[in-house]
Design a protein around this nucleic acid. Sequence first.
DNA 1: TTGAAAGCGCTAACAA
DNA 2: TTGTTAGCGCTTTCAA
Lengths: 348, 348
Amino acid sequence: MARANEENRRKPVTLSDVARAAGVSQATASRAINGSQRTVNEELRQRIFTAAEKLNYTANLSAQTVARGTSTTVALLVSDIADAYFSSMAASVMTAAEAAGLRVTIAVTERSVQREIELVRELRGQHARAIILAGSGYLDSDLTEPLVRELEMFEDMGGRVVLVSRMDLPFAGVDLDNLEGAKRLASALVRLGYQSFRVLGGERELVATRDRVAGFRAGLDGHGITLGDDRVIYSNFSWEGGFDAIQAMDDRVLADTGLIFAVNDEMALGALAGLRNRGMRVPGDVALAGFDDIRSLRNIVPTMTTVRVPIEEVGREAIARALEVGDGHQPRVVTAIVVLRESTPRLN
Amino acid sequence: MARANEENRRKPVTLSDVARAAGVSQATASRAINGSQRTVNEELRQRIFTAAEKLNYTANLSAQTVARGTSTTVALLVSDIADAYFSSMAASVMTAAEAAGLRVTIAVTERSVQREIELVRELRGQHARAIILAGSGYLDSDLTEPLVRELEMFEDMGGRVVLVSRMDLPFAGVDLDNLEGAKRLASALVRLGYQSFRVLGGERELVATRDRVAGFRAGLDGHGITLGDDRVIYSNFSWEGGFDAIQAMDDRVLADTGLIFAVNDEMALGALAGLRNRGMRVPGDVALAGFDDIRSLRNIVPTMTTVRVPIEEVGREAIARALEVGDGHQPRVVTAIVVLRESTPRLN
DNA sequence: TTGAAAGCGCTAACAA
DNA sequence: TTGTTAGCGCTTTCAA
């Protein structure tokens, strides 16, 4: 089975090989195979396809990109592809992209704005058609300005930028309705009889943290309950963040807490583990709610109250915005839905 | 903010722009910026970099790929990126790739061999450096032969093929030790006192199903316990598959079952939900074990016995094999470790 | 409708 | 060490 050593490697079949085999010019072969507006005589067309098939021709995408000056690739930038939320999102974006005849390349930002900047820069070099930035969303970073500049250069080049869940920058976007979703959740919980809340936030600078905390607070406000700053505990936007925050909580504080709202489900799951680790029952001793409605919630007992982000819709909308022309910047809002489950039972 | 309409879009900065600005030839600029063996005079080098910086130059990857005839992209083919196992794998492959200066593009096969074939074909056109196929692993498919042919053409072109967890094809690979892992699990369970087993398999044609079932059976055999064919229930290799298999089980069969081994954790979690749905307690009424040790196991109660596949190592090994030259086909084996937890307590 | 030829941005002989 | 020049595989004017 000695194939493909440095020496005996077969040169790939090119379009000109196909053209020669079919007895036409390369231009005609190009028009027939890689579609263009112009039509090709049916008989030639047949000959060309037959030749291509026989030679096992596949178009060299890079060459097409160079020649055309544009590609059909959209890039999805996520913080961490192993995270359930982002991997679901990637799946939905890929499905939508496929339907639109686009290919997707996924890049991981590792929650670093610096990395985002580098990646956007590279993608400019790759002539990506669009960038869907679903990453961190760090506010107030010194790097926000450079990031915006880089994104603008990307658009100047003809690419399109779509931001998911952060509307503070001047680009097209899909808004996740964090604020309203959290607000409705707070309302629903008050109506179930809860009075004493604590909130577990991720990094303070994160858009998701800020909006969800603010929304939750606004929702409580509407019922005359004030969520003091001391009732919001900031940690990491991850399972470990939720776990650690609980571990660090004072016994008396915990005893005084009726319900904990973690700003995402991963944190809520970490908190759940933390609570159990401290011998607390959920919802017996304390109720718990999250945000996102990630798939793995179906595995836990008790079932968990959360705010569902319809992730397929997010993917579809992101691709739709990526395909739009012009530069409208009004975000498309995807509605988040409160889902009440066992972790927050009605109080008597 | 009217940028980037069709009309007023700025032409991207090219290498010749940089060269002109620096007052050198394009060749020199190329050597300085996009590294080559050859060295460039330090002063020129400075001038070139300054010019590149000022003009915000980024190399056009496609053009480089065309000119060089090879790319630094490796493609990872997975069944479903939303699946916890595959998304972890993607993360580990990306980390390892980054360290090696490669970029990764992820493509989804949707558990279809036909799709795998198409993708490999496209990747040949993209001059990908390597393909890591971590997908389905369907045996006995009519399409296996075409797939192999396509992969061989990919290698003929100079690309490298790395198979994860399927050693039946003549390519480099990373073996997951499915057989031995399942065998050790069976042994450990027998030693805990279990006697009556059922196995939940995924699709019969799946390598993972076949090897894990065979390994488990062999492990039991070693202790004089025979696992009859009627004790293996085939379903889908997914959460739903596990759930459905349990729903479809006869009451008497279930009552006669001491332990259920699901061939992957997702199925085990589905089975857990199914068992609870039928009012069975785990491990009180029936014990349960899975395979993979996916991350979300940390959220469930009881903690679940499984066989850990060290996924980071798989990613590293896959990239290492992708970088190897020559055509050795002996798979690198990654050892799977039995992890006993609460779902399979020792029996008195 | 077809073909010849120029060009996309870059690299790599080959000379100088 | 640098520059000249000829490609890489493809698309797309421009003539025919």
